[in-house]
Amino acid sequence: MLRAFEKGADGVSIIGCMEGDCHYKTGNLRARKRVEQVQKILNTIGLEGERAQMYNLSSSDGPLFVKYAQEMDERIRNLGPNPMKKKKKNAA
Protein backbone atom coordinates (compact mmCIF):
# COMPACT_ATOMS: atom_id res chain seq x y z
CA MET A 1 0.00 0.00 0.00
CA LEU A 2 2.74 2.44 0.99
CA ARG A 3 4.65 1.67 -2.20
CA ALA A 4 1.57 2.69 -4.20
CA PHE A 5 1.43 6.04 -2.42
CA GLU A 6 5.18 6.45 -2.81
CA LYS A 7 4.78 5.96 -6.56
CA GLY A 8 2.11 8.65 -6.65
CA ALA A 9 -1.25 6.89 -6.25
CA ASP A 10 -3.88 9.43 -5.17
CA GLY A 11 -5.83 6.83 -3.24
CA VAL A 12 -5.82 3.12 -2.55
CA SER A 13 -8.96 1.04 -1.97
CA ILE A 14 -8.46 -2.34 -0.41
CA ILE A 15 -11.47 -4.52 -1.09
CA GLY A 16 -11.91 -7.70 0.88
CA CYS A 17 -14.71 -10.21 1.17
CA MET A 18 -17.46 -9.65 3.69
CA GLU A 19 -16.28 -10.14 7.24
CA GLY A 20 -16.77 -13.77 8.19
CA ASP A 21 -16.65 -14.87 4.55
CA CYS A 22 -12.89 -14.77 3.95
CA HIS A 23 -11.48 -17.85 2.20
CA TYR A 24 -8.45 -17.44 4.44
CA LYS A 25 -10.67 -16.96 7.50
CA THR A 26 -9.11 -13.77 8.89
CA GLY A 27 -7.32 -12.34 5.85
CA ASN A 28 -9.83 -9.52 5.42
CA LEU A 29 -9.69 -8.64 9.13
CA ARG A 30 -5.92 -8.52 8.96
CA ALA A 31 -6.13 -6.37 5.83
CA ARG A 32 -8.34 -3.89 7.70
CA LYS A 33 -5.72 -3.63 10.46
CA ARG A 34 -3.06 -2.97 7.85
CA VAL A 35 -5.13 -0.25 6.23
CA GLU A 36 -5.56 1.37 9.64
CA GLN A 37 -1.81 1.16 10.16
CA VAL A 38 -1.17 2.79 6.78
CA GLN A 39 -3.71 5.56 7.52
CA LYS A 40 -1.84 6.31 10.75
CA ILE A 41 1.51 6.42 8.97
CA LEU A 42 0.17 8.67 6.20
CA ASN A 43 -1.23 11.10 8.77
CA THR A 44 2.10 11.13 10.60
CA ILE A 45 4.14 11.97 7.52
CA GLY A 46 1.79 14.74 6.40
CA LEU A 47 -0.37 12.92 3.83
CA GLU A 48 -4.07 12.37 4.40
CA GLY A 49 -4.73 8.95 5.94
CA GLU A 50 -8.17 8.79 4.32
CA ARG A 51 -6.47 8.25 0.96
CA ALA A 52 -6.34 4.58 2.02
CA GLN A 53 -9.71 2.92 2.53
CA MET A 54 -10.87 -0.58 3.33
CA TYR A 55 -14.14 -1.90 1.88
CA ASN A 56 -15.86 -5.26 2.18
CA LEU A 57 -17.85 -6.66 -0.73
CA SER A 58 -19.07 -9.96 -2.02
CA SER A 59 -18.52 -10.86 -5.68
CA SER A 60 -22.17 -10.25 -6.52
CA ASP A 61 -22.25 -6.74 -5.05
CA GLY A 62 -21.85 -4.84 -8.31
CA PRO A 63 -24.00 -1.84 -7.39
CA LEU A 64 -22.31 -1.53 -4.00
CA PHE A 65 -18.92 -1.66 -5.69
CA VAL A 66 -19.98 1.25 -7.89
CA LYS A 67 -21.15 3.15 -4.82
CA TYR A 68 -17.82 2.61 -3.05
CA ALA A 69 -15.87 3.54 -6.17
CA GLN A 70 -17.84 6.79 -6.51
CA GLU A 71 -17.37 7.50 -2.81
CA MET A 72 -13.63 6.98 -3.13
CA ASP A 73 -13.50 9.09 -6.30
CA GLU A 74 -15.27 11.95 -4.55
CA ARG A 75 -13.03 11.68 -1.50
CA ILE A 76 -9.87 11.79 -3.60
CA ARG A 77 -11.10 14.67 -5.75
CA ASN A 78 -11.77 16.65 -2.59
CA LEU A 79 -8.30 15.89 -1.27
CA GLY A 80 -6.57 16.68 -4.55
CA PRO A 81 -3.60 14.85 -6.03
CA ASN A 82 -1.06 12.94 -3.96
CA PRO A 83 1.70 15.44 -3.14
CA MET A 84 4.27 12.70 -3.93
CA LYS A 85 3.35 12.98 -7.60
CA LYS A 86 4.39 16.62 -7.70
CA LYS A 87 7.61 15.97 -5.83
CA LYS A 88 8.48 13.17 -8.22
CA LYS A 89 7.88 15.46 -11.19
CA ASN A 90 10.07 18.16 -9.67
CA ALA A 91 12.81 15.64 -9.00
CA ALA A 92 12.67 14.48 -12.63
Binding site: F5, E6, T44, I45, G46, L47, P83, K88, A91
Partner: peptide, 16 residues
Protein backbone atom coordinates in the same frame (compact mmCIF):
# COMPACT_ATOMS: atom_id res chain seq x y z
CA UNK B 1 7.25 -0.04 5.79
CA UNK B 2 9.48 2.30 7.80
CA UNK B 3 11.76 3.06 4.84
CA UNK B 4 8.77 3.82 2.63
CA UNK B 5 7.25 6.09 5.30
CA UNK B 6 10.56 7.95 5.71
CA UNK B 7 11.01 8.35 1.94
CA UNK B 8 7.56 9.90 1.69
CA UNK B 9 8.20 12.08 4.74
CA UNK B 10 11.35 13.54 3.17
CA UNK B 11 9.73 13.92 -0.25
CA UNK B 12 6.74 15.69 1.30
CA UNK B 13 9.09 18.07 3.09
CA UNK B 14 10.76 18.86 -0.19
CA UNK B 15 14.05 17.14 0.58
CA UNK B 16 14.51 15.97 -2.98
Amino acid sequence: VLASALRMYFANRGVE
